[in-house]
Write a protein that binds this DNA or RNA. Sequence first.
DNA 1: GTCTATAACGTGATAGAC
DNA 2: GTCTATCACGTTATAGAC
Lengths: 207, 207
Amino acid sequence: MKESEKIDVSTEEKIKEAARIVFYKKGFAATRTRDIAEEADINLALLNYYFRSKAKLFEMIMLETLSGFIQNMLVVLNDEKTTLEKKVEEIASRYIDLIIKEPEIPTFIVTEIRNNPDMLLKKLPIKQVLTNSMFFKQHEEAVNKGEISEPNPLHFLMNVIGLVVFPFIAKPLLMGGSGINDTEFNALMLERKKLIPVWIKSMMKGE
Amino acid sequence: MKESEKIDVSTEEKIKEAARIVFYKKGFAATRTRDIAEEADINLALLNYYFRSKAKLFEMIMLETLSGFIQNMLVVLNDEKTTLEKKVEEIASRYIDLIIKEPEIPTFIVTEIRNNPDMLLKKLPIKQVLTNSMFFKQHEEAVNKGEISEPNPLHFLMNVIGLVVFPFIAKPLLMGGSGINDTEFNALMLERKKLIPVWIKSMMKGE
DNA sequence: GTCTATAACGTGATAGAC
DNA sequence: GTCTATCACGTTATAGAC
């Protein structure tokens, strides 16, 4: 890498980063290539020069985002050195930090997958990895030992991820409904890093 | 109402219902007025004849959907005759039934509010109603009695709604990641009507 | 690689006949 | 109220000069 490239990022990278920002905020259908060009402070024609089309550029961003998001989770769920309990702590901690930095990601993923459920899921081998995961084994073990009352690991997974991610998705509604501001919202989310593992522990034990 | 209107719904109503279906599925930006006309099986020009514009039609659908969704919740949260525990059961039961019937609603609300956070929240007086709600009073009482360890009612609210709604929002990801089909998904959701109140009870009691 | 100009197309909306 | 035809505009994408 040349010295100049360390200071001024390449045009290609500038466009990609701008595209990420705009796509995250408005979704594919609502963003215009002009928005991206403006955000990147480049000429509109350069977008098509570097990336063939708006759709191609989008697909690239989407794939990176989604695979990053999911890969991150699979790594935690497949760690052979951590207990089930520790896995919950890891997911809560990692994802809350990550989403506070990039608050638009969860809604972005959800809305864009709705518009194209196949395309992306077929490219990512989530199912194989998940069903053979350390997480599933440990969950089954805990159920057999009577430490967890609900036998279906999908409920467990939905609960953890839902408790972590949902507040970010519902953030505008929550802020409108409660009157809290952005800083207060983030403080609440940080609290949840400690709270969620405790909650999960209590709720999964059963009455 | 004339007899004929009972049999063939009015054109206006046909358009509105078609708009609801298409908007729910694709969102505002991605739907074309032609999609709506086709879904309603009417001439494209009629859409502008009955509703002034695509935006006006959308706003109507959005407002109805959102106020219905929120009003429903406020009614439960403000019921003076039910305990806090019963309120959780009510919300889980009502909303899971409702969303199974109209699975696109949560994602629709979330994505469209992202694109226009002000417009709609300012028209609905959620904040006043919520902060003076029976729910808040009962929660505070339970905290004072030591029945609930986490003092912030927002955590409680996020948890209940998240456990109920999140799986529907993440449905495509969940189905792709686990291999379950639509019927199995709905069965899981119905299970949660009973599970969520129990979980909430355990988790809020504290260790 | 970067720019200007413009082509090619899709979309929301309306005019005007019936 | 409903239709056909069409306008007016915004948007993606490219041609071609520099």
